[in-house]
């Protein structure tokens, strides 16, 4: 796959939709292109976070360790970014990501990612939008869970 195809794919990722194609090309060029086989792990829960991954093709499971063993939290597909939260707030990986089909990804190292955010405010805003979106989702889910719990308790 060539640089210009990657640029096309990156443009479909919501996070990068506002970024000029020339900059996307630079991002693609400076990122590492990695391919994974089905079942191969992108990163493990607890690892130090050093990069974010843009899934170009294929899909992966997001798994979290729990007392009852590994549970699948979500699945991600192409055109999405994964692992960006951990490099933003310098924590270790909060989940394991494992390819569930042959997967192609762009690996953006932490330094490059941070640099991108400071160079392109539109990306930062986009990231904030994504994060805020996730937060509101989580809040809604939490309040639903709480009210369910209450109902449960009052019964």
């Amino acid at each position: 796959m060539l640089l210009k195809d990657e640029v096309e794919m990156l443009r479909r990722v919501p996070l990068f939709s506002g970024v000029a194609p020339a900059k996307l090309k630079l991002l693609a060029f400076t990122s590492e292109r990695v391919s994974y086989k089905s079942g191969q792990v992108l990163f493990n829960q607890g690892d130090p976070a050093d990069a974010a991954y843009v899934i170009l093709s294929g899909a992966a499971d997001i798994l979290a360790d729990s007392p009852s063993g590994e549970i699948k939290v979500a699945e991600i597909e192409h055109d999405s970014i994964v692992g960006e939260i951990a490099i933003l707030c310098d924590v270790s990986r909060t989940a394991t990501v494992r390819a569930n089909s042959p997967l192609e990804a762009l690996r953006i190292s932490k330094d490059h990612f941070i640099k991108l955010l400071s160079d392109y405010p539109e990306m930062t805003i986009e990231i904030m939008r994504v994060l805020a979106d996730r937060l509101s989702h989580t809040t809604t889910e939490l309040s639903e869970a709480r009210s369910k719990q209450k109902q449960h308790a009052s019964k």
Partner: peptide, 16 residues
């Protein structure tokens, strides 16, 4: 040149 002309010389991208 197209990729890098706008970047300051000490930009980390130059590693690539």
């Amino acid at each position: 040149v197209e990729l890098f002309q706008d970047l300051p010389p000490d930009h980390p991208f130059f590693q690539q």
